[in-house]
Simulated scan of single mutants.
Amino acid sequence: MEENDQDKTRIPRQQRSMETKRKIVAAAMKLFSEKGFHATNTKEIAKEAKVAVGSVYSYYTDKMEIFKDALALFHERFTTALRGHGALQLNTSQNKRELIRDVIEILIKVHEIDIGFHREMDIMKMSYPEIKNMGNKKLRFFYKITARLLRSWKQEIRIKDPDAAATVIILAVHRIVEAAAFGETDIPRERLIEEAVDMLHSYLWPKDIKHMSTDIS
């Protein structure tokens, strides 16, 4: 039976093979961050990983497959960092403004972990549907946990459609976080965060805002 190209690539089963593949992906991520996907070639990846070019091709059929694994690693690091900060174990009894601010600040810090690769990922998503699909899958994960949180607050918030609201919130926060992390605005970070907190808090708990205005007057 003839083997196709993918059959010829090895699935790492031993520790040494797994370590070699990890080095290739880490090297590729570094170069993609610094030079971009199109300006990086397989020979450079092998040199950065300190492996033979043949070793790279024994695990990957082309550079795009390496990028996909690098993107999967990036998403894994992103989620691990969020879990480490506790952002995925949200405390629903926490002061709501503090909760919103904590999540936004954590997301900004996580975005700053590897700005170069993050930007390259955004570029690649515009040109390659498979990369866009990988990113969308990760976003759907955040839509899901946000919708779950909104449902846990259903007795106290104005939201009627948690799934749609979760999508609106994530899309808004995503752009705010990127603008803050990547320096895309002249507004100081703290002012940007404060306005984002006000926006989301008033969207979810408009009665609290009215109550606050009455107290002040």
Rank of each mutant, 00 (worst) to 15 (best):
D5R: 14
K8D: 07
R10I: 15
Q14H: 12
Q15A: 09
R16W: 15
M18P: 11
T20F: 10
K23P: 00
I24Y: 04
A26L: 15
A26N: 10
A26K: 10
A27T: 06
A27R: 07
A27D: 06
L31Q: 08
F32L: 12
G36T: 07
G36H: 07
A39H: 12
A39L: 15
E44Q: 13
A46D: 07
A52K: 03
A52G: 11
V53K: 08
G54A: 12
S55F: 01
Y57H: 13
S58L: 14
Y60H: 04
Y60T: 02
T61I: 15
I66L: 03
K68E: 15
T79L: 09
T80A: 08
T80M: 05
A81C: 05
H85I: 02
G86A: 06
A87Q: 12
L88T: 10
Q89C: 01
L90S: 05
N91Q: 07
T92N: 04
T92H: 03
Q94L: 13
N95Y: 01
K96I: 11
L99E: 09
I100K: 02
D102R: 13
I106E: 07
L107W: 14
I108C: 03
H111C: 12
I113S: 04
I113V: 14
F117H: 09
D122I: 01
M124H: 01
P129R: 04
E130F: 09
I131K: 00
I131D: 06
I131G: 03
K132E: 11
N133I: 15
N133C: 09
G135V: 07
G135N: 02
K138T: 04
L139Q: 06
L139S: 02
L139V: 06
R140I: 00
R140V: 02
F142Q: 10
Y143L: 02
I145T: 12
I145H: 08
L149F: 13
R151Y: 06
Q155C: 02
E156Y: 08
I159R: 02
I159N: 03
K160G: 09
K160T: 14
D161S: 06
D163C: 00
A164Y: 02
A164F: 03
A165Y: 00
A166Y: 02
A172M: 14
H174R: 15
V177I: 07
E178V: 06
A179E: 12
A179H: 06
A180E: 09
A181F: 02
E184Q: 08
D186R: 13
R191K: 15
I193P: 00
E194I: 05
E194A: 13
M199H: 05
L200K: 07
H201F: 14
P206A: 04
P206V: 04
K207Y: 01
I209L: 08
I209R: 10
K210R: 13
M212G: 00
M212F: 11
